[in-house]
Simulated assay, not measured.
Amino acid sequence: MQYVVIYLHGFLSSPQSQKATQTLEFVRANYPNLAIEIPQLANYPHEAVKNIELCIAKHKGKKLRFIGSSLGGFLSTYMVEKYSGKAVLINPAVRPFELLGDFLGEHINPYTGQPFLLENSHIEELRQLDTPTLDPKSDYWVLLQTADETLDYRQAETKYQDYKVTIEQGGDHSFQDFQRFLPDIFRFLLQD
């Protein structure tokens, strides 16, 4: 059976982000026949889920694999729990509905230039996507750096403690030197 890898970027990010482009370049160089999707996620949670589900629908019958960064890690977890599959999560947001309450108001995505308004209803949408308990049959590998300036890495360390977790001292929210993990990430994702 074939695989599809779906890379999910974080809040105020895009498929043009450094990790997304590094991932795409790695796949093109090493797995040229692998289906990979890096969708531009909508700025609102329920619309972002629809973006992801359109990617899933295009690859019906393929095994689902996700790479999710920050808010994309939160959404990847939701997708794995809903559809099954595997995910590599990079400094994932665990409770973004708590964090993004401080970001209500107008924003402009720095990659797309698209303005949007983050409201309480969107925070509630995130709360509805929460996965407080994880299926023991799910498979995650979580990459964390302790000096993440946006998220407390210990939240992810606790949530995913029953899965593979790699914690590096230092770093930042972008996960410094992410590309060095790409060979191992794809070995993990492309095995059953």
Rank of each mutant, 00 (worst) to 15 (best):
L117I: 09
P115N: 03
E119G: 08
E124I: 13
I123S: 00
D135V: 01
L134P: 04
Q128D: 13
H122Y: 07
T112P: 05
Q128Y: 12
L126P: 02
L118T: 03
K137M: 11
E125T: 05
E119L: 13
F116L: 07
L129R: 04
V142P: 00
T112Y: 04
S121Y: 10
D139E: 15
T112H: 01
T112M: 04
I123Q: 00
L134G: 05
P136W: 07
N120R: 13
E119M: 12
S121D: 13
P136L: 10
P136V: 09
Y140C: 07
L126Q: 01
D135L: 09
Q128W: 12
L118V: 07
F116Y: 14
S121K: 15
D139S: 15
H122K: 00
E119K: 15
Q114F: 09
S121G: 11
V142A: 00
L118W: 01
S138F: 07
T131H: 05
W141H: 10
T131V: 12
S138T: 09
E124C: 07
D135G: 08
L126W: 02
T112F: 03
T133Y: 14
Q128L: 15
K137Q: 13
D130V: 07
L134Y: 03
E119C: 10
R127V: 00
D130I: 06
E124T: 12
L134S: 07
Y140G: 01
T133I: 13
W141N: 01
T131S: 11
L134R: 04
S121T: 15
L117K: 12
P136S: 13
W141M: 08
L117M: 13
F116W: 07
I123V: 08
N120F: 10
L143Q: 01
L134W: 04
D135E: 12
D139L: 13
Y140Q: 05
E124W: 10
F116S: 05
K137A: 14
W141D: 03
L129S: 05
L118K: 02
G113H: 07
P136M: 10
S138M: 10
I123E: 00
T131I: 11
D139T: 11
S121F: 09
F116A: 03
R127L: 09
P115K: 05
H122S: 05
K137V: 02
D130N: 14
H122G: 02
T131K: 11
L126M: 10
G113E: 07
T133W: 12
G113V: 09
T131G: 04
